[in-house]
Amino acid sequence: MEKVPMTVRGEQKLRSELDVLLKRRPLISQAIAEARELGDLKENAEYHAAREEQGICEAQIRDIEYKLSVAQIIDVTTMPNTGKVIFGTTITLLDLDTDKEVTYCIVGDDEADIKQNLISVNSPIARGLIGKMEGDEVAISTPGGQKEFEILEVQYI
């Protein structure tokens, strides 16, 4: 089974989602029991809705448990800051075409959220940055065309 990289924050987020789902389990079971008492199950909308909710909840629990079982948790805060871009680092870049600064954190696929500047380790930008050093200029092929960046800062936070 291949391990999937995940940050400590990503693991914590998944574990808290799992806790919420596990706490919902008995409530859903109770709703099913109450709906059963209402009579004929063929025409009992409350029963069918509760059963559907149970199925969705159980699928989410299995999905999260699987993700956690294949996760390789990487904590960059325990590593010496060498200025090298690796998984989990936060990188401040200067877009050489627009002179705008942007900061990204390289995370696992499930954690990626571009609105929060969390980019997947498998994204073109992350793949182009991994292994580079603070101060390097990098040309990266993106779906929007060739982009050139200067790595201003690499943080192990």
Rank of each mutant, 00 (worst) to 15 (best):
V4G: 07
K100Y: 12
S123H: 06
D109N: 13
G83A: 08
A50C: 08
N81V: 02
E11K: 09
V20W: 11
S141G: 12
Y104H: 01
S141R: 15
G131Q: 07
G144P: 02
V85G: 06
Y156D: 10
E137N: 15
K147W: 06
G145P: 03
M6Y: 02
E52G: 14
T7C: 03
P143C: 11
D63I: 05
E148C: 12
T78C: 09
Y66E: 14
E153F: 06
I61T: 05
Q116K: 15
Q72R: 15
I61D: 03
K84D: 05
Q116D: 13
S29A: 13
Q54K: 15
G145V: 07
V70Q: 04
Q60M: 10
G135E: 13
I91C: 08
T77Q: 06
E111I: 00
I157Q: 12
E137V: 09
L21N: 05
N122A: 11
R36A: 11
R51T: 04
L118K: 04
L38M: 11
R36Q: 07
T82I: 09
V154Q: 04
E58L: 15
M79K: 14
K147P: 01
K42V: 06
K3W: 05
A33V: 06
Q116W: 06
E43M: 11
R51A: 11
E34M: 08
L18C: 01
I73L: 03
V121Q: 03
E52I: 11
L21Y: 07
Q146H: 14
A49I: 12
K3T: 07
V121C: 08
R24P: 05
D63T: 13
V85I: 00
R127W: 06
T77W: 06
P26D: 02
V20P: 05
Q72W: 10
N122T: 12
V107M: 09
E37D: 03
Q30V: 10
N44A: 04
E52H: 14
L21I: 10
E111N: 03
E46V: 07
H48I: 04
R25V: 12
K3D: 09
V85S: 03
R127C: 04
V154A: 02
E53N: 08
G83E: 02
E137L: 12
D113P: 00
S123V: 01
Y66M: 06
Q146F: 13
I140M: 04
Q12I: 08
R127Q: 09
K147E: 05
E148V: 14
I106M: 01
S120Q: 03
I56E: 14
K42F: 13
R62C: 06
L118D: 01
R15C: 00
P80L: 14
L68H: 08
P124K: 09
V138G: 01
E137K: 15
Q72E: 15
F87P: 02
L152E: 09
G10M: 02
E101L: 14
L41N: 06
G10N: 00
A112S: 08
K115N: 13
E37K: 04
I157L: 10
K132F: 01
N117V: 09
L118N: 00
D136N: 07
I32G: 00
E43S: 13
D109M: 12
M1S: 15
T77D: 09
N44Y: 02
D110E: 15
K23H: 11
I125E: 02
L68K: 05
C57L: 10
S16K: 10
E43P: 02
A126M: 01
K115A: 13
Y66K: 12
S120A: 04
A59H: 07
I91A: 01
M1V: 13
